[in-house]
Amino acid sequence: MSFAARRLAQAVPLLLIISLLVFGLIHAAPGGPLSLYLDNPNVRPEDIERLKRAMGLDKPLGAQYLSWLASFVRGDWGYSYADGRPVTERMLERVPATLQLVGISTVVAVIVSIGVGVGAAMRRGVDHAASIGAVAGLSVPVFWLGLVLQLLFSNTLGWLPSSGRASFIGGGLADRLAHLVLPVTVLAVAHAAGWSRYLRGSVRLALAQPFANAARARGVTETRIVLRHALRHALLPFATVVLLDASIMASGAVVTESVFAWPGIGSLFTEALAKRDYTVLMAFLMCASVAVVMLSFLADVAVHALDPRTRNAS
């Protein structure tokens, strides 16, 4: 069996366990997915019975799980309790905004991490400052950082818009870019903190290897050794670390999009949370987890294809 096929065979049971956990979580609610209606005095008991039958909630739990899983795989994710529209539709319309925000902040974080990581691997002074910065970046509450930046740059200085994706009127490119600055900064800070330390570590490791010493002996300058040899060595594991952090990105996007009223999937999630819109919440959790599993699958397959050493090891 090829590596990709074997790796995919591992992903399937993983996805099944995830689906069981997510399904179990929603059905742990007193009253199950209908608990929202149970609290509402305007919904009559016979309506609840009718809804239960319509949604298949009167069937045994195992049968419910199987039919839910089957329709999830088919892309039928049910209807939002909040406005009755298909969940798939509500989520799809939010995808572009999230991809834009997460994509741009990932690129920014990668560029910053490479710069800071390489600097820290080469200079002691940079390393010291970078390690303090990284611990700070990992420790700051994301939503508080967002609120403070809004307060400073939007309300006090008036340089940047505080929320949304574009102004209602006259939304040109500059306006859209201005709206991106704060949310991208907040998301990038958290990622760059961890990633820069990782890159510094792997560049250091590469610099201690015989090939680096051989290059030094040939009289190659340290800068050139770092940029041409050590960094190349470090980039592949770095790329997998970035892909493997998708789970943290999803959490970060939820918080950042809510603070900045960014109209993406993350703010759809918090809107759904406030209304206890379980079909949307469940679909979000499943999609995010499937994306995480898929990205780690891609990372493994890519490393296997690009790095011959991993093939010999396995």
Binding site: L14, L25, S247, I248, V254, L273, L281, A288, S289
Partner: peptide, 19 residues
């Protein structure tokens, strides 16, 4: 692995909202 793949904060938010 499964628990690590489910984004932690949204998972906790749903659990806290339900319970």
């Amino acid at each position: 692995d499964a628990m690590l793949a489910i984004p932690r904060l949204p998972l906790l938010m749903i659990a806290a909202a339900i319970l």
